[in-house]
Amino acid sequence: MKPPGSPLRCHGADGDALLSGAPYVLSHLEVLESESVHIFREAAGEFERPVLMFSGGKDSAVMLHLARKAFAPAPMPMPLLHVDTGHNFPEVLAYRDRTVARYGLRLHVASVQDYIDRGVLRERPDGTRNPLQTVPLTESIQELRFDAVFGGGRRDEEKARAKERVFSLRDAFSQWDPRRQRPELWQLYNGRHMPGEHVRVFPLSNWTELDIWQYINQEEIELPEIYFAHKREVFRRHGMWLTAGSWGGPQDGETVEQRTVRYRTVGDMSCTGAVDSDALTVEHVIAEITASRLSERGATRADDQLSATAMEDRKRDGYF
């Protein structure tokens, strides 16, 4: 991974814009990077207790890289928070812990399993725990008094996320009301909130899946290996290849087979589908998604297919 804190590059006809007097031009990725860095700095200056959501997925890996870049050479002024469903991919958890140790970061983990063991939450009949993340998330925000929570949501992922502002106000119950969204003209962000409320901040709002992968390639950001083609035992359910495991799959009539797959997005094993792929490198992945006409959530997330408004319903309850 390239170290954070490197200056933005500028391009001229002879490759030396500053010396030649050529126009100062930022590339598409540099514009996105600059915007995200600005968002991190604005939020850090406005809020007292920010936290960054970090699951170990590609979007949170990029978000962490940008956050470290925004404040380098100083340490990042916020801890990390992960809601662990208990059904996360082992490779992703290993990457999460490895990254935290490498950079000396502080990590808070909210465990869905703890809430189940205490009787606060109950297992769903379909085995998926993704919808169960909301209570551990919102209670962690309240208990640790976080007033700004950075999330890796992007507007291109899903129609409910397309409605989000960069600064998204949540009420005292962590609920989201699209009617309370504030205008954000000229990149002016309004973080005002009442006691008990907080703001969700989305530095990657204007990025696309392709932008994320191109930036990963440019910055040489390490990712969990399951984002690249590998052999895995999977079974078919609702048109998706799901990983076999103790969470509840496969069921009667569902046959496990070994296939060469990779993951476009990473969440709970019970609702995150793999795609057939031979993409072994970042360049191969970029070529693959350039030809795709489905967003990664639309193609591989069963929890978004529960209903036409599944994501918006979860967001209204406090989910990201």
Rank of each mutant, 00 (worst) to 15 (best):
V199W: 10
F202S: 10
F173Y: 12
E222V: 09
L210F: 00
L223A: 01
Y24Q: 14
L18G: 05
V266C: 12
V256E: 04
M194E: 15
P75L: 09
A291N: 08
D268R: 09
F40A: 02
P224A: 05
E219N: 06
R200K: 11
A287M: 01
T128L: 00
F173S: 08
Y189W: 15
G318P: 07
E254L: 08
W241Y: 15
E164W: 09
Q175S: 14
A43E: 04
M1P: 11
A148E: 04
P195E: 03
P90M: 03
G248S: 06
R41K: 13
G119A: 03
R124F: 06
A22D: 15
M311K: 10
A67D: 02
T243K: 07
H82V: 01
L223S: 05
V25Y: 11
A72Y: 14
Y263E: 01
M240R: 08
G298K: 02
E254R: 11
K315Q: 12
G5P: 00
Y263C: 01
D97P: 02
R49Q: 13
T138S: 02
G249F: 00
G5R: 00
L26E: 12
E219L: 09
I216Q: 07
L52W: 02
W241M: 12
A160P: 02
E254M: 11
A172E: 14
A22G: 04
G127R: 09
R124E: 14
Q113M: 09
H11L: 09
E257Y: 01
A308H: 13
L210M: 06
R262E: 00
D313K: 09
S295P: 08
Q305L: 14
L121Y: 08
R165V: 10
R49Y: 08
P73N: 13
V199H: 10
V37P: 02
D278V: 07
V149I: 11
D276V: 04
L64W: 03
G298R: 01
L52S: 06
